[in-house]
Every structure is written in structure tokens, then in C-alpha cells.
Design a protein around this nucleic acid. Structure first.
Lengths: 233, 233
DNA sequence: AAAGATAATATGCATGCACATATTAACGTG
DNA sequence: CACGTTAATATGTGCATGCATATTATCTTT
């Protein structure tokens, strides 16, 4: 019994998954060795290994070298969420993308960012206000600060043709970033810009990216009403 | 030159990564075949394959069967976000967690879920309304549907002591899930439950989890005003 | 020349084997 | 008996090979 349809590693993964799900192997319990499973399924150990590795990557089982493989007690719920470039996101919806630069200024570091941009307190940052459109309807409103200490080449960029986001992605690769998501009631200005009524709940994403210890940029994106961010586990 | 320290697949991945980063292979450009790379690095094709597969998983290269491998034009920005069990999230804030079951009923599949729960259209689902507290203040409001076809053991559970979330995590491991996040204006009911004024922008998370093709549960979590979901890249 | 059949090709995957490495269990010695 | 050494073991990884499969290019046939 327990013969999988195919001997593909995905087939074996499904069968292992079934056993975990059906509590043939309870949470915390040790599961048979790769070699035993390989024999049972009539396949090579490599194939079982691939299936188990995949389950381990998704956090369902814990593997240790000599200790064997056991079913995770608290399978972590991790989701990888892809933050697309807005232009691509819009174009993926089959709509036409356009953006418009509302404001471009050199400013001292705003108080809100003193904590993170402290490295360049004396220096000005490049401040950009951009509105992204999908089929000529407002899609997202972007406020951005660029650290000119870290990315001095940005000082000369107009950011009228290609958006700051795309330029930075290609020219200032970051090593890490902090993200936060929240809901926001539209104030008068935002409502006007995003073409909604004041008070509308808007999905907001804030992001600060760094290269090493140096902050590159801070972005606040306020999406038009009805936006949903999607992801899969 | 270009000899990696080791012939490990991670070493090769690092070298490929460097070439992409240093624009030896420009975005959109095709990179050599596995066989050629294997020869260059003096290793087996399997090893190159493993490195390339890993890069493809993280979205840096795009692979197609006969078309070959090319550097992604716009490397997607991925963030891993950990979705904690609410109790743990609250306790991590140093607050006391409590939840209260507001409603528990057997219902036909609601129209909203016909698309996803179609496998059990005739069958009832278990519907739960739960309010989560942090230090006796409302933290999140949860509406949940549990597919009794997939998780029949849930029919007998009261979910008064341990929350449905925790019970499901331990008893019905899922293989995949769809997540979506949005902002929502509080209606009269929600405002009353979450102790805010109607119209307040609330952060909302919706999740459907599956085991194979069978849907396990659908959850809608509406967080109290001011909630921020955080993550790092 | 357009459409359909066929060949070529790059990745995807399975196998059997060997060795590396981390970890635990067993062993010995003071 | 405590503690350090050694052996056993399960996973991790690499290799050579062969076949599967998707996709593109080419070669027919009408």
C-alpha cells in the first residue's frame, strides 16, 4: 500500500504530507530515515531527500544531521510576499501605467526620519512626491526620501521618465529593508490626490532600505481605495 | 579566473550572483547553459542546476525549458513575512492574551466562498466569530469558516479554550495558502466590537489554507485601529 | 507561402554511488 | 563516575548518466 501514483519527488512529497496531515506521524514525532522511505517507495534516496528538503523548507518538518527528521511542532506560518515594481503590477492587470512627479525638492531630514537617517543629519535629502496611475486613474501615491550621502548620483536624476523606484532597484541594490503595512484614513489632501472621499480606508506600505548600515531610501506608498496586497504561502 | 573557492553549489551560486550583481550578465541577458557552466566550474551539471534552481526560486533568474536561463529584468523584491499566532504576537508585546468566542454555528457555504469551497457545496461549514484581546482591550476580530469535509474532527471542537487557529495549526497542517491584505472602513458592528468609531481605517488580513486541493479554512482578521504589520527583507 | 509535422536543444528529474559533516551513542581511561 | 575520545548514523552534497518534457527551429507538404 501507500504506493504513490508516480515516483516523482512531488508525488512522494504529497504522500509524506498526507501522512503528516492524517497524523500517521504526529507533530514532534520522528519519521523514518530517507533510506527506509526510499525502499518503501521504491525510489532512490535522492528522490526522498528532495521531497523532505522541500517539506523542511516550508517548515513542516525539522531535519538534523544525525538526529533524523521529525514533524514540526509549531509549523511556522511564513509567507513570501513579492513587492512588485508598481509599473509591473499595473501592467500585469492589463492596464496602462503612467506616473507623474508632483514635487521634487532638497530638504533637511524630516523629524520622522531622524531615527533612521541620523547618519546624514546635516545633509539634505531628495524628497519626491509621485502619483502612479493605472489607465489614467490614480493607483498609488508615493512619498520618498533619498539619502544623498548614500546615493549621490540621485542628486542629478530628474525621475520624470523612469520612476525613482525602478532607478534605485537597478542602481542602488540594497542589502536589507524594513517594511510595515497599515491602514490609514484618507485626509483631505490624500483624498483629493487619490480621487476618493476623505476618510476612506487606504492600504499603506512603508519601506526603508539599507545597504549595510547606510540608509538608501524611505518610501511611503498609499494605495488607492480597494487595493489588496496578495501573497501565497 | 572566476574559480570559486569550493565547488559546492552554494559557492557556485555566489559566483553567479556576483556576475549578475556586477552586470557581467546584464538584466535580460541570457546566461550560458548548465553544461557550459559546469565545464567552466569543473563540476557536474547537477551542481550548476542546483545553484541556478536556487537563484530561480529567489526570482533572480528566469528559466525555461528549451529557452535557457536569463537574468530577470526586474528582480522581484521579496519579503518573508511571518504570520504569528495571535496569542504569541500579543504575548510578545508583553500583554495578556485572551479570546472570546462570539458565535459558533454550522452554516451552508457562504456565497463569497463558493469559488473556493466548491468541493463541499452541499455540506455545512463551521462558522466561528472570535474576538482576540490584549490586556482586555480588543486586538483583532476574527471570522472563520472551517471546511468540515476536510477537517471533520473540528465538528466536535468547542474552540473555547484553545483558539481555532492554534488547533488547526496543530491538527490540520496545510500545504499552501492564499493571503490578502487590505484596508477597511469600520462598519457599525465592527466599530462596536473593536471599540473604535465607525469609519476608522482598519488593517485586514484574509487567508485561505489548503491541503492539496481541499480547502481547510478561511479566516478574515480585522485588527484594531493603529495595527501595523512589520517585516524585513 | 502558410500550416503542420519533425527534429534539435536546454532544462527537469530520477538513479546509484561515494564521500562529507554534524550529531549522538558507546566506549575507555583516569 | 566524570570526562574526553571514538565510532556509528542520518542527513547533506557531489558526480556521471540516462531519459522526460517543454519549447523553439527547421523541414516538409499542400
Amino acid at each position: 500500500m501507500a504506493v504513490t501514483d508516480t515516483n516523482s519527488w512531488t508525488g512522494i512529497r504529497e504522500e509524506l504530507l498526507r501522512r503528516i496531515h492524517d497524523r500517521v506521524w504526529e507533530p514532534g514525532a520522528q519519521i523514518p530515515h530517507e533510506a527506509d522511505l526510499a525502499e518503501e517507495f521504491g525510489c532512490a534516496r535522492t528522490t526522498v531527500n528532495r521531497a523532505l528538503r522541500d517539506l523542511a523548507e516550508s517548515g513542516l518538518v525539522i531535519r538534523k544531521r544525525r538526529a533524523g527528521t521529525r514533524v514540526a511542532l509549531n509549523p511556522p506560518q511564513r509567507a513570501t510576499l513579492t513587492i512588485p515594481i508598481i509599473r509591473e503590477e499595473v501592467e500585469a492587470l492589463g492596464k496602462t501605467y503612467r506616473h507623474s512627479l508632483l514635487e521634487r525638492a532638497y530638504q533637511p531630514v524630516p523629524p520622522m526620519l531622524h531615527g533612521v537617517f541620523h547618519a546624514s543629519l546635516g545633509e539634505d535629502v531628495l524628497y519626491l512626491k509621485t502619483l502612479h496611475f493605472a489607465d489614467e486613474r490614480p493607483y498609488a501615491f508615493e512619498e520618498r526620501h533619498i539619502n544623498l550621502d548614500t546615493v549621490p548620483q540621485a542628486r542629478e536624476r530628474k525621475f520624470e521618465v523612469s520612476s525613482a523606484n525602478e532607478w534605485l532597484v537597478h542602481n542602488a541594490p540594497y542589502s536589507r529593508g524594513d517594511l510595515s503595512f497599515s491602514a490609514l484614513n484618507a485626509d483631505e489632501d490624500t483624498a483629493r490626490i487619490l480621487d476618493c472621499t476623505p476618510g476612506t480606508a487606504l492600504f499603506t506600505m512603508e519601506r526603508i532600505t539599507w545597504t549595510g548600515d547606510a540608509p538608501i531610501t524611505h518610501v511611503k506608498l498609499i494605495f488607492a481605495a480597494g487595493y489588496r496586497m496578495r501573497s501565497t504561502i
